[in-house]
Simulated scan of single mutants.
Amino acid sequence: MKKLFILSILTLLTASYTFAQKDAEAKVILNKVSEKYKTYDAVKTDFDFTLDNQQAGVKETQSGTLIARSKANKFRVTIYDAAGKAAVAQEIISDGKTQWTYLKKDNEVQVNNVDISGEGLNPAQVFTIYEHGYKYIYNGDKKIGGKVYQEIDLTPEDIKKSFFKVRLMIDKVKKQIYSALIFDKNGNRYTYTLKSLVPNPPIADNTFSFDPKAHKGVEVVDLR
């Protein structure tokens, strides 16, 4: 379940969506969001991720951190144990060429080439995913906890996708994505909520690479 959990996060961050007709007002809103993020060299965000399937009686929540340098297609996704940030459960790291998936419980890291086909999972593009292959519709403003959010629904152009809709909530004042609710065909609901966002954070040289020497006894599974 843990492994599926982080894969679900990546799917959530990078899936492509579309409606039968593009909504001009939604496009204006989304353009403002992506234009803002494109001014940053890098971003760091803390998030909560919830998997909910009422029929199966499953509801799990974990927290994580994403550091991304979108222009270079580099990212690091860290998922924490329920105990908190002190305990890292899983990580997915990419330097734009190589991707490492580290599972702490198994003390294993899987190494793959980055998928450049456009079909792969790329959290570095999380804030601009709507730009290619989507259509969208603006549902109006929603007030949550005293703040106003703009609600936009997206659905997949490719009907073979496992997801049939994603609902974005965008902070109307900050022009930032606040949350995304993903609906898949198996009854799962994935909610990704940004808790904070830091533009242009200081980034260490080794942020976007995995060092086996720093993980004693780790099994390296090279799938390239």
Rank of each mutant, 00 (worst) to 15 (best):
S63H: 08
T11E: 11
T207I: 08
A124K: 15
T11N: 15
K142S: 13
E108T: 15
G57S: 04
S34C: 04
K74Y: 01
D211W: 15
K59I: 02
I170T: 03
T61P: 00
Y40G: 06
Y130W: 13
E35Y: 07
P156N: 01
W100S: 14
P202H: 06
K32L: 03
V43A: 00
D222T: 09
K175M: 08
Q90P: 04
P199N: 02
F208T: 08
I29K: 10
K147H: 13
A89V: 01
K74E: 05
R69E: 03
S63K: 09
G118L: 10
T14L: 03
T65W: 00
D46Y: 07
M169A: 01
V198N: 03
K105D: 15
L181P: 01
Y136T: 02
E60T: 12
G57N: 09
I177F: 05
I159L: 03
K165E: 00
K105C: 05
V173L: 03
F47P: 02
T78S: 03
D171P: 00
F127D: 12
N206K: 11
I79R: 14
Y136K: 00
S94M: 09
H215L: 06
S117Q: 11
S34P: 04
K71I: 06
T61K: 04
K142C: 02
G120F: 12
N188C: 02
E219K: 14
Q150I: 01
A26N: 08
Q21K: 15
N122E: 13
I6M: 12
K161Q: 12
Q176W: 00
D222W: 10
Q176R: 07
K185S: 04
G145E: 15
T78W: 02
T14K: 14
L12D: 07
Q54E: 15
V221R: 12
K74C: 05
G146K: 11
Y80V: 05
L51I: 15
Y130V: 10
A82R: 09
K71D: 09
G187C: 04
E219P: 01
K105M: 13
S196P: 06
K38W: 05
I67P: 10
D41I: 02
N188Q: 04
T207M: 11
E157N: 05
F49D: 10
P123L: 07
P212D: 07
I29Y: 08
A42Y: 01
N73C: 00
I203K: 07
K27D: 13
N113R: 15
P156V: 05
V166F: 01
D222A: 13
Q99S: 14
D184Y: 05
V109H: 11
T155C: 04
A83S: 12
V28Q: 08
Y192M: 05
K165N: 03
K175I: 00
F5K: 13
A83I: 10
D81I: 01
I67F: 05
P202L: 09
D95E: 08
V173F: 02
N31K: 07
I67G: 04
D205M: 06
D48C: 07
D222Q: 14
S209L: 08
I170G: 03
K142L: 12
K3I: 07
V33M: 09
T18G: 15
K185C: 01
K135R: 12
L154F: 10
L30W: 07
K85W: 06
A72R: 15
I9G: 03
Q110H: 14
Q90M: 15
Y40H: 07
T191V: 02
V221P: 06
F19Q: 14
K174E: 04
L51E: 10
A86T: 12
N186P: 00
T78H: 01
F163L: 02
F47Q: 06
F127V: 06
